Simulated assay, not measured.
Amino acid sequence: MGQLVTATAYPADVAVVEGLRRGSDATFGALIDRHQGSMLRVAAVYVADRNAAEDVVQETWMAVIRGIDRFDGRSSIKTWIFRILTNRAKTMGRRASRVVPISSLNGSRDGPAVDPDHFFDTRHPYWPGHWCNPPSRWAEGPEDRVATKDAVGAVLRAIAALPSAQREVVTLRDVECWTAVEVCDALDLSETNQRVLLHRARSKVRRQLEDHYEDSCGR
């Protein structure tokens, strides 16, 4: 018999967990509809192609069914599912010799998120470390630009080029609209590490988007 789920922490999950333990097809189908797309995108951070990502997601759902009796409610059901997913995706990625370098986690060998030439020297008498060459203002508002198909493609290409840890965090935060707490719980990150990875990722994406529009305007 499965453990009781703590109703006070994540009350919305109680009915879901109970339905899964009863073998409810409706509950399982609703869970798939809610998370399948996000799971594929996160799995793709670690594995080489969509087929491999689909395999990871399939294995994750099977693990959810097999392990639901051991779910104890200390995290949300979504967090629990994505922890299973990322662990399996990392394992498959390692098997395919796509090991994530440790530098992508702590940024120790990563280049600066923004070109240092954009800032005054730290010894500047009035504005040490401040912008001397801020990001260029686009002719249209960023919202108008990003709304275009061309801009969306540029953003997705920029995200795809990020180190995997940064790509995972920015995908969950800015593509899937997760909260910082959810990302930290799902990826087992400290709040500080999550914030640093997100800042680096967003800075690089913005820089790539600026380069994209500068090239477009120059043509």
Rank of each mutant, 00 (worst) to 15 (best):
S75H: 15
V57L: 02
A44D: 15
V45W: 12
R70E: 15
K90D: 05
E59T: 08
A53Y: 06
D33V: 09
L31N: 04
M92Q: 12
E59P: 09
A52N: 09
M92T: 10
T86L: 02
E54Y: 02
F82L: 00
A48C: 07
D69K: 15
T27R: 02
R70G: 12
W80K: 03
A48E: 15
A44F: 05
A44S: 14
A43C: 04
N87Q: 10
A63L: 10
T79R: 00
D55V: 03
L40N: 04
R66H: 05
I68E: 09
R88H: 15
A89K: 02
G73Q: 08
G29W: 14
L40W: 01
R50F: 07
R50Y: 09
S76T: 03
M62R: 13
L40S: 01
L40C: 02
A43M: 09
V42D: 10
R34A: 04
L31V: 06
V45N: 15
T60N: 01
A26D: 14
K90M: 07
T60M: 08
M92H: 08
F71R: 02
I77R: 06
I65D: 12
D72Y: 15
D49C: 10
D55H: 04
M62N: 14
R74Y: 10
A63P: 14
D72E: 10
D55C: 03
I68T: 11
R41W: 03
N87H: 11
Y46A: 00
F28L: 07
M62L: 15
M39K: 00
D49N: 11
Q58A: 09
A89Y: 11
L31R: 09
W61Y: 14
L85A: 01
A89W: 08
I77K: 11
E59V: 05
G29I: 05
G37F: 09
V57H: 00
R34F: 01
M92E: 10
G93Q: 04
G93W: 15
F28G: 07
Y46F: 13
G29L: 10
A63Y: 02
G29K: 06
I77E: 03
V45K: 01
N51M: 13
V57P: 01
V47P: 01
R34V: 00
F82Q: 00
I81Y: 12
F71T: 04
T91I: 04
D72K: 14
V56L: 12
A53D: 00
V47L: 02
I84K: 14
R70I: 04
H35R: 02
D49W: 04
M62H: 14
T86V: 15
V45Q: 06
G67H: 01
I84G: 09
V47M: 06
T91M: 08
G93C: 02
I65T: 06
R50I: 01
M62F: 11
R94W: 11
R88E: 13
Q36F: 07
A63C: 04
H35D: 12
A89Q: 03
S75F: 13
A52I: 05
S76R: 02
M62K: 14
A26L: 11
R34G: 06
G67L: 08
A48I: 05
